[in-house]
Structures are given as C-alpha cells and as structure tokens.
Design a protein around this nucleic acid. Sequence first.
DNA 1: CTGTTAGCGCATTCAT
DNA 2: ATGAATGCGCTAACAG
Lengths: 381, 381
Amino acid sequence: MSVTLADVAARAGVSAATVSRVLNGNYPVAGSTRSRVLRAVDELEYVVNGPASALAAATSDLVGVLVNDIADPFFGVMASAIQSQIGPAGDHDAEAPHGQKMAIICNTGGSPERELTYLTLLLRQRAAAVVLTGGTVEDPDHLGALATRLRRLEAGGTRVVLCGRQPLTAATDGAAPGGAHGPVPGPEEDPGPAPVALTFDNFGGARRLTGHLLDLGHRRIGYLAGPAARTTTRQRLDGHRAALAAAGAAGGEAGTPEAERLTVHGGYDRASGYDGALELLRREPGLTAVVAANDTVALGACAALRERALRIPEDISVAGFDDLPFAIDAAPALTTVRIPLHEAGARAGRLALGREEAPAGRTATLPADLMVRASTAPPRP
Amino acid sequence: MSVTLADVAARAGVSAATVSRVLNGNYPVAGSTRSRVLRAVDELEYVVNGPASALAAATSDLVGVLVNDIADPFFGVMASAIQSQIGPAGDHDAEAPHGQKMAIICNTGGSPERELTYLTLLLRQRAAAVVLTGGTVEDPDHLGALATRLRRLEAGGTRVVLCGRQPLTAATDGAAPGGAHGPVPGPEEDPGPAPVALTFDNFGGARRLTGHLLDLGHRRIGYLAGPAARTTTRQRLDGHRAALAAAGAAGGEAGTPEAERLTVHGGYDRASGYDGALELLRREPGLTAVVAANDTVALGACAALRERALRIPEDISVAGFDDLPFAIDAAPALTTVRIPLHEAGARAGRLALGREEAPAGRTATLPADLMVRASTAPPRP
DNA sequence: CTGTTAGCGCATTCAT
DNA sequence: ATGAATGCGCTAACAG
C-alpha cells in the first residue's frame, strides 16, 4: 500500500516518467527498458494508484450505470451485458489489468432525485462514461435538470449513453413512433450534440401484443399499467390502446371512461399485478384477457386470477412484456414481448467506451418481438 | 468542469482549507462562514473532484462488490441490498451527496482469475470496502492467492466482508457444520484478523429439504448439483447426502457408485437443469424426486420432466433452493429453501461501512428455511 | 475557529 | 528514447 511509481523507477534504474510510459503503453519505449520496468513492477507487486492517475490524467476508468433496481432481472441483464463489454473479459490478460474499466451501478429506485444525485456523484468521480438504463419520469422539470446534468457531464469528457430510454424529449412523446416533440434544452447554454440513445420499440411491441389478443377474439381486455408519467409505461399503454382503437375495441380511446375503467396503474412489481388484477375483475367481471406492463406484473396477476379459480388461458388470457428468463417457466408459459436486453446492454457498453460508432441520427430503435406462448388463447364462447 | 476548491474559497472570501472543512463536515466551522461557503458552492455549481480528494485522503468512497453474475437474481438481490445501505438513501439530502459511497459491481462469472483481477483493480482504486458474495472455487491455490489479495486490501485500509461465503477455509469444509479445517494462511506474512463473514446454512437447509422428501416417502432421489469444487455446491450436496444417509436411503454415502449415479453436476443455470434431469431419468427411470442445486436449475428440470409427460408432483417431485422471487410463481409453486439474501446483503453493506459491529467470532451463519409448496408430494404408490 | 504550508502519486510538457 | 520539472485538486498537519 505504499510502493509507488518512484520505487519502481528506482528498482528498474529509470525515471518515474519512463515507468509511467511503459505502464500506459501510449508512448515509445525501448524493449529492454520495458522488460526491466515490468520486472520491477512484478517484484515490487506494484499497483497503480487509481485516484492519483485519475487526478493527473483528468479522467478515471469508472463507468456509471444507472438502473432502477439491480435486483430486477430487467436491469440485471442489461447491467451484466454492459459490464461484459467494459470490464475484464475472459480474453484479457488477468495479470495486466490495464485500461480495464469498472462499472459503478447506481440504484435509483425510479426516483428522479436520486437519479440526479447519482449523476452528480458520477460527475465528481470524473467518470469516463455514464449509461442510463430504463425509462424515466416524464416531468419537464426533471427532464430539464437531467439534460443540464448530462450536458455538464459531457462537457467534462464523460460519454453519455441512453439505453432503453428515449432521447431527452418532452412528455408527450411515444403516442406514436415519430410523433415526438423536440428535445428539451436545459434552461441555459448550448445543447450540444444529444447523447446517443438505444431505444426499445415499446409502442410497436405493445401494439402487436394486443393485436394478437384481438386476433384471438378478445374484446374485453384489461390493462395493468406501470407507474403513470413514465416513458416506458406510456409507450406500452399507448401501443396497447392504438391496437384497441384500430380494432374498434373497448378502451382504445385514451381519456374516455371506458379506457380509464379498463386500465389500472401500479408499480412494476408482482404485488401490483396481484392487486391490479383483482381491481380489474371488480370493475369488469366480463374480462377475457389481461395485459400487464411487464412479466413480473403478469405473474402477480396470474396468481390473483388463479386464486379466483380462473384458469389461464381457458377462462382468461394473460400477457406480459420483456420476456425475462422466468417467463417461459411460468404456469402456463407466458405470452409476452421479447426485448433485446442483452444486445442493448452490450451495445451500450461499447458505445460508452467509444468502441462502436453511434448510429445514424444518434438514436437506434431495437425491435420488440411478440412471443406467443401458452397463457393466451381464444376467449370462451 | 474546472471550478475548484480555490475558486469557491475566493468567492467566499475564505481559504481553501476552510471550504474543505465545511464540505467534509468533520471539523468545527463558524455558522456564518459555513453558510457563506455553501452559497459560493451553490453559485459556482462546484462539484468536488473525487480522485483528488481520494488521493489526498488516501481513501475513496467506492465499495467493490464481487458477484458471479449480476443478471442472476440471487446476486442481484444481494447487490441491491448492499447498495441500499451504502448509497444515497431516500432520507438523505439529495443536494448534499457527502459521504455517499458508490458500489462498483464486478461480474466474475465464477472465474477465479477474474475474481483476483477485480480485487487488484479495487486495490488500485483504494476502495473503502470490498464485499465478496456467493461461493467460490475450493482450490487451495486460488484460496491462497485470494487470502493474499484480501490481506493486502485490508492492510491498505479496505474493509473486507464475505457475504454468503465461508471464511477462507480449506477445501474439505462443509461436510458438516463445525467440521471446518483451519484457515488457509497465504504463503507469507501475518494472517491478521480474518475478514468478517456472513454465511448461509446451506448444509442445514439442504438436509432439511431432502429430509422433507424422505418424510414424504421418497427413496429414489436424484440430485442436480452445481459446478463441482465450489463451496456452495458442496455444502448443499453434503447436506442432501447427510439426510439420505441418516435415513439409510440410496446415494447417502459419498463416493459410492450409487451416490455418483444419482448425482449430476452442471452449472447453476436453467439449461443444466434441463439436461441434468434428462440424464438422471436415463440413469434411474424409477426416480420419484429431483432436488436441484438452486431454483433456476429446478425450473429447467421441471421443463424437461414435463416434456417427458411427467406430472409434477403427481409423477415426480421437484425441489429448488434459494427461494428466488419467481419460485412461487412457477408451475407448480416450487418447494425450496429460503435464503435471506436481502438481509445478508443489507448487513454486509453495513458491515462494509463499519456501521454495524462484526458478529462474535467474526462469522455469523444465517438460517436457511424450508419452504414447502406444491412441487413436492408423496411418491406414487 | 481559520489560514499556511506541504505533500498525496502520477502524467505530462519540455529538454536532452 | 529517456530524464527533470511542474502541477492536477484536495486534505492534513501546524500555526495562529
């Protein structure tokens, strides 16, 4: 805990500058000196002082990853994928952790304040990059504050990547793909280039999912939405309603009593699915299908429905979203929408390191594919 | 990205040292000066330079968390709990991120080399603490190298906490609680105090689980073990066999052909459960129950069994381990052993920050409770 | 209670 | 290709 560059230099009979150069490998050094230095490093068991080099170089090798909750596989899978691209991979030399970045995972719990707090903390660490995953609150104030923080980060050389989140836009986006409003510039200064964003086709996926139910013959479909005013929630709900509207089914027009009645907002957790399904049944006993905001909510709904002695899918169909690993092992296997979480995370990781070029327009939308399984079937005659 | 302590000091009409003091709050400062400084900080939007302060103070506010795979809820839940104790909690002032630590999550993928690499990286960062979660490889060489790294970390002031992992012991531990061999000191120097460890009662939980099956009347029980030579795998397998042996059932004596025949080693993933169950059926068509190394493996086994037209639990019983969130929603609900992942993580987080006293003997064993659900039943007559 | 003085360990100019 | 010197921004004694 005390052997420094100077010690290594002395041992190798060179100057500290030279040691620094061989360690960073970004400067020509004679082969013989290099090996001499390397040997000294080894003998002394020298370990670079990260903070010191970060201070001198004005950049650290830390990458911030913001997630709602790392215990949720939705974020866990993305985080894992991001990590796989920035950390020590299997093919790297374990004995020479040079240029290895490390991921700082920040659990925001979905709280806008905590999101901002973490961004400040990351700014303070002079993070090399920051990846923001998942949707966020659609509040203009928060979006403004967020944009300001991100701009500040970028100004300091931190690369910013949005993964599974819309580029910073106004609240009324997602009603339809392409129907976005303009970016929200912070209260001051030059917006600069927008952060690169990888988004999921939540709207399209949701529309196809509900379309599948409609094709099956369902007309009374309840929707278990996520927390209100969050991008992901809205996009999925909007997609659902768009499908309903296109088929002229009940609840397709937002704002109507019918639409309100068939929609229950809750969290993205199992308990919300359980409670929400019960509430939906109370409001509309003739329900033939329930679409959930995500797989976890869907599982909660299934539990509630089963307790009501309703068989899935004979008596009522249930569908989820995300296709998390456990969806296929649910009872019955859950019909859902597959989101390429791993690919998105891996790509975001590469983007964060500048190892992959930004997509045209700085935004790429990843597909959301319908996965029809056993939890959906035609309604009872 | 360039306003420094000095700038704030100038603006507030005080010295840099004073600013540092109010910011760190660990030194008496006059109320008026403090507010003047705080205002300057605010006006200038000053953000501390983490690396610089880490260098000067010789410690950072980063906490390393080693996990096998953050995408696995087993680790995700623990990581989330750890994080909840060290990061910005809801009750903290979002505008004053002082003393907020951040978690660096390191995915080792179960690789010993990567585990060591990460430890070196963490040493380099001068991490305030390191939490190692989950079991590890039982190889003496690795254990030795690990002990050395950890000692080095502790020598540098980094607090080390083992969460869900045995204290550094020799390979032949876990055969019975208390049957441990002595600690493995590294090849050199003074061992110093062992890191504090929070362990799970894998042995006892496994024994109770298999005991439950035996009570039900099962005698031909297959075991889907995790990767060989890992602490968690062994403890669970040993517990299973101890129960078998106590009942005089087949496969209770390790090393016998019978025991080998009824045990299949694989990974901790779903595919291993699927393949393993098929293999078990091939070896022993008369199987009446399958015990899996964890819930994920159990789910894979269920899928395979169902494809073989075997009903669970009527034709064959299945049991898991860990009681991950999805276990209760499986079809049928999985009988398993509950491991207090959240509590363990939270406690480890507090231990890492020195906010909780180390347990007596520096090691505490957390209970593993049997959760009997619908996937187990008496064998067919 | 506050200011002054030194480094912390490394990456960089500049020289050579 | 290598060495010497300077400073990154902050904290920690030490004065006062």
